[in-house]
Design a protein around this nucleic acid. Structure first.
Lengths: 333, 333
DNA sequence: ACGAGTTATAGTCAGAGTGATGATAAGTCG
DNA sequence: CGACTTATCATCACTCTGACTATAACTCGT
C-alpha cells in the first residue's frame, strides 16, 4: 500500500500558482462589558460591517503580525488574544466586487480587547455593537426562546420538512436532523458552540435578510432575526462566536477580556455573556477554584452592595498542570 | 460605551482591497491502514511535499467545493470529511517565490479517505507516506520517548533556558514554560493535540532541518527529528494532526476513515494511530458503546485469530442525542 | 442600633463518568 | 485436547457534576 518516499516525479501541482485575487483581513474584535459581548463594527453602505483591511504582501511578514499591527492602528487598543479564524471565499460573498469580476478572499481573525481599555479612536469610524443585536437567538440567558420564539422554530420545521419528503439518500444529514441538532428540538441539549451551523441553517431557510439576493423581501432588522450586516459578515461573526465558546472550554482565554484582578462573579458574567447561557453560581466557583484557574489576592472588591467579594487573579500555573484548562459549559458532550 | 448602530461614516477599510497575491490550495489528505496514519505526498525538488493546486477564482464557487473537486481529481478517491484548516502566509514560507517577489498564500485543507479505498491515480505522482515518518515524536504508542530520546529533551531544555535567563518580562509565556507544557516535562500529562506547538518549538530551537535557512547544517532526515519536507509543509501537517486529534474528541470523524462495519478493535486502532497514544481496551469499548456511538450488527468478523469479534457500525442517532460525541483521549483537561 | 436586603462562600449528597483490574467466553492452531 | 489469542462482561474505587442548604459579611433605610 505504501512507498516510504515519494517518487521523484514532479507533480502537476508543484507548478507555482499564478492565480491573482484580492485578499483582505477581516477582524472580529471582541470585548465584554455590562454582561454583554461587544464587537467592533464600522459602517459600509448603511449596514454594519466588520472592519476589513488590505493585506500588504510586502510590508507584512506574517498574517498574524499584519492583523496585530492593523488592528492596533484601528482601535488604538492593544489586542490580547489574536487567532486566525477562517478564510472566506465564496464567489457570491461580495456582489459588488463580483460584478466587476474580482474575487475577494477574506482572512478572518478573532481578537480580544480587555475590559476597561479605552475607546476605539474616533477617527476610525468604528463603534462597539452588541453581538446579540446581530445574532439574538444566540443569547439564551433569559429563557430558551428569548426573542426567538416558537414562530422561528416552526418556520424551520416547515422548511426542514421540505427536503425530508424529498429524501436525499442518507449521505448528508437531512435538514430536519440538522435543525434538530442545532436547536435542540429533539432531546439533545442546546450547544452554544454551534452558532455557525445555526446561522447557516437560518440562511438556507431564508430567515435572515442576507439570504434574499439583492435586497428582496426581508426587513433588515427584526426582533427575532436581528440586524442584518454587510456581505457575509454575520456569518463570520457567528463563526467567531462559536470559536470563542469552544475555546473557552479548553483554554483560559476569558482572562484576556478581564482586568488583572476581578471577582468570581465578574468572571462568571463574562463567561455567561460569551456563552449565552447562565451557569450555576456555586458550581462555577468550585470549578474555577478547584481547577486552579484562579488564585485569591488577599484584597476585597469595593463592594457596591452585599458582602464584598474577594479579588482573584488568573493563576498562570494552571498551564503547567493541565493541558486543557477552561470553563465547562453545561450540556457539552 | 456603546452606540447601537454604527455611524454612517465610510470607514477607511471599506475601500475595496486591491492587493494581488498568489493563492493556492494545499491538501492534507489522510487515511489510516495498518495501525498507521498516512498522508498523501508528492515530490517537490526532491523533498516530500503536500499536494497543492491553484485556486480558480472563476470556476470555483466556494473554497470547499474547489478543494473537493481538485482533491477528487488528484486522488481518484472520494473524500469523506473535508474541512478548512488554516491559511498560511508567512513571507518566508516559499523562498523561491519570494525571490521573484511573489507572495504565496496557501489555504490548507484537511480531508479523509476511507480505508479500503483504491490507490491514488498513478498519474498524479502522489504516494502515501507515514505521518510519523515526518513527525516521529508525535507517535507515543510504544513508550514515552520512542525515537525521541532524552537527547532532544535536553536540547530543548538548554535552548529554552537561553531566554529564561533573558527574562522577557512576564507577558508571553517563557520558552521554558512552553517546552514544559508541550513535552510534559513538568507534571502535566502529554497532550496529543498540541502537535503544532511542538513543531513550532522544535523549529524555533533549530532542531528541524527546515529551520536552517537555505540548507545549512542539518541533515534532511534523522531518526529523532524525522524527514524534512518542502517549504513549511511539515508545519501544515503538524497543524492538521493537531486538528484531527482535537476533532476526534468531540465529533465522530473517525468513522469517515473506517469501512461501514468494523470491529471495536479496528476502531480503537484507528483512534490510537491518529492520537499517537494507546488506550485502555476495556474502557474504550465501554466508552464507545455506552456513549451510543456504535451499534452492533449481528454479524461477526472473519476472525484471523482469537475469538471472533462482533461487527459494529456507526450509529447516526448519537448526533441527535449528544452535541459533542467523540472519543476521549487520556489526560485531556 | 437594628433588621431587611444583597451578595459571598462553605458544606453536603446523589448520580454519572473514569481508570484499573479480574474473570469468563469463543475462537485458532499445534 | 491444551495452549494461545482475542472478545466481552463485571466490579471497584475515585473524581467530577449538578443541585441544594446554610451561614457570613456588608449596605441601606428607619
Amino acid at each position: 500500500v505504501s512507498t516510504t518516499s515519494p517518487v521523484p516525479v514532479p507533480a502537476p501541482a508543484a507548478a507555482p500558482p499564478t492565480t491573482a485575487v484580492a485578499v483582505e483581513l477581516t477582524a472580529v474584535i471582541v470585548a465584554v462589558h455590562d454582561n454583554r459581548p461587544w464587537v467592533l463594527m464600522v459602517d459600509r453602505d448603511g449596514r454594519p460591517a466588520l472592519p476589513s483591511g488590505p493585506f500588504d504582501p510586502v510590508g507584512d511578514r506574517t498574517l498574524d503580525r499584519a492583523m496585530r499591527r492593523w488592528g492596533t492602528d484601528l482601535t488604538g487598543l492593544s489586542l490580547g488574544f489574536v487567532e486566525q479564524l477562517y478564510t472566506f471565499g465564496d464567489i457570491g460573498r461580495d456582489p459588488v466586487a463580483a460584478a466587476s469580476g474580482a474575487r475577494v478572499l477574506s482572512i478572518a481573525y478573532l481578537a480580544f480587547v480587555a475590559a476597561g481599555a479605552a475607546e476605539p479612536s474616533a477617527a476610525s469610524g468604528a463603534r462597539w455593537m452588541d453581538v446579540y443585536e446581530l445574532l439574538p437567538w444566540e443569547d439564551r440567558r433569559d429563557g430558551e426562546a428569548a426573542g426567538f420564539g416558537e414562530l422561528m422554530v416552526s418556520a424551520i420545521r416547515a422548511w426542514s420538512g421540505a427536503d425530508a419528503a424529498g429524501d436525499n439518500g442518507d449521505e448528508r444529514p437531512s435538514r430536519l436532523d440538522r435543525a434538530e441538532q442545532c436547536w435542540s428540538l429533539g432531546g439533545a441539549p442546546w450547544d452554544p458552540v454551534r452558532s455557525l451551523e445555526r446561522y447557516e441553517l437560518l440562511f438556507e431557510a431564508g430567515l435572515v435578510a442576507e439570504a434574499a439576493a439583492s435586497g428582496a423581501a426581508m426587513p433588515a432588522t427584526s426582533a427575532a432575526t436581528g440586524v442584518a450586516a454587510a456581505l457575509d459578515h454575520r456569518r463570520i461573526l457567528a463563526s467567531a462566536l462559536g470559536r470563542v465558546r469552544g475555546k473557552l472550554t479548553y483554554r483560559p482565554v476569558v482572562f484576556e477580556l478581564l482586568p488583572d484582578t476581578f471577582t468570581l462573579l465578574q468572571l462568571q458574567h463574562v463567561v455567561e455573556a460569551l456563552a449565552g447561557v447562565t451557569l450555576h453560581k456555586q458550581n462555577f466557583r468550585r470549578l474555577v477554584e478547584g481547577a486552579g484557574l484562579v488564585e485569591g489576592t488577599g484584597r476585597r472588591a469595593e463592594g457596591l452592595t452585599g458582602r464584598p467579594a474577594e479579588l482573584f487573579r488568573f493563576r498562570r500555573g494552571v498551564l503547567r498542570e493541565r493541558p486543557a484548562p477552561g470553563m465547562n459549559l453545561p450540556g457539552r458532550r
